[in-house]
């Protein structure tokens, strides 16, 4: 097997609950939240890896770790075999061009006081990707056309565009550096459904055209199912199940994945009354002992309450972190 383009190995990120002078004087230091806890993800070139989970499960933190906006507490992010944390200044500049990100909120992801031209030119200028102003202009026109906008739009301000159009601009900015790896953090969550389909189609087209590799993050299982080749399900900072998309959605193994699939409202089930998952996502400040899902799990036993399950292959292409599955109970 060839080496993956992106390799998140044993990635953890902890946050101190408060910072500044107060904690310095407090005994025992600050309380720590494990937002991301030993996550392993490998993504091959041209592949789309979907990361799904409820709010606060740590998926956005994984996105920020993967692009190098945050440094991991433990573990490493390797891009094309280079560790982001130990890369030198020059390597890092080169890596930055190859890794880009599309953000969730099309309103806060661009400076409202800048014209579209300035917004798209910022990466080109910072990374010295254009040799002359004329070339930069040509490149901006080309990028706007690529995402379905018109070159004349570059003279406008963000507020003159709808949410969907802004997300197109955001994609144009991300593509300006000719990246290989694109992290998409809930790129369509803030959009209306009819616009969502436009953006998802555009992203698939661009992926085919430029051989892009995606880390696609969403809370929407249907969107993940549509976009991803492989899927990881996150719960309280850990990946509880990881499998090829088709297998995950047709034969989910982890009780959490099963319940998640059961709770998604579905157009095809008119008038259907579903059995909702009981309980709530626990507070990550005080996570449950053992398996983090055990308080909501119908199959939990004593072992689940005490011992944290590690993620293992089930022999059929699924990795799952569940004692029940590993013991053959579920």
């Amino acid at each position: 097997m060839t080496a993956p383009l992106i390799d998140l190995a044993g990635l953890s990120r902890h946050f101190a609950l408060s910072s500044g002078l107060n904690t310095r004087f407090r005994k025992g230091g600050a309380k720590v939240v494990r937002a991301v806890d030993s996550v392993d993800i490998e993504i091959a070139r041209g592949e789309t890896f979907g990361l799904v989970g409820e709010s606060g499960c740590g998926k956005s933190t994984v996105a920020r770790l993967a692009v190098g906006l945050m440094r991991p507490t433990e573990g490493a992010v390797r891009f094309d075999r280079v560790d982001l944390a130990s890369a030198g200044r020059r390597d890092l500049a080169a890596l930055r061009r190859r890794i880009q990100m599309v953000f969730q909120d099309p309103y806060s992801s661009m400076n409202a006081r800048w014209r579209i031209r300035e917004i798209i030119a910022e990466p080109l200028r910072t990374l010295n990707l254009c040799s002359s102003p004329a070339e930069m202009d040509r490149r901006i026109d080309e990028l706007l056309t690529l995402v379905g906008l018109s070159p004349a739009d570059k003279r406008k301000y963000p507020h003159e565009f709808s949410g969907g159009q802004r997300q197109r601009i955001s994609i144009a900015r991300a593509l300006s550096t000719n990246p290989e790896f694109l992290v998409c953090d809930e790129p369509t969550s803030a959009l209306d459904v009819s616009v969502q389909s436009q953006i998802l189609n555009l992203m698939k087209d661009l992926q085919a055209e430029f051989d892009l590799t995606f880390l696609f993050i969403s809370h929407n299982l249907a969107v993940i199912s549509h976009m991803a080749d492989r899927v990881g399900v996150m719960y309280l900072g850990r990946i509880v199940e990881q499998a090829p998309a088709q297998r995950l959605f047709s034969a989910p193994r982890h009780p959490y994945t099963k319940l998640l699939l059961e709770t998604v409202p579905d157009l095809n089930r008119i008038g259907y009354t579903r059995k909702p998952m009981s309980g709530e996502v626990p507070n990550p400040i005080n996570p449950p002992s053992g398996c983090p899902f055990h308080p909501r799990c119908a199959f939990a036993n004593d072992r689940c309450k005490q011992e944290r399950p590690s993620i293992r292959a089930d022999g059929q292409g699924t990795l799952v972190a569940c004692h029940g599955v590993q013991e053959g109970r579920i």
């Binding site: 920020r64 890092l92 990100m101 953000f103 806060s108 910072t126």
Partner: peptide, 12 residues
Amino acid sequence: KDYVEAARLIGV
């Protein structure tokens, strides 16, 4: 805000 993150990402 995300636009500041976007700028940091490319190393501004």
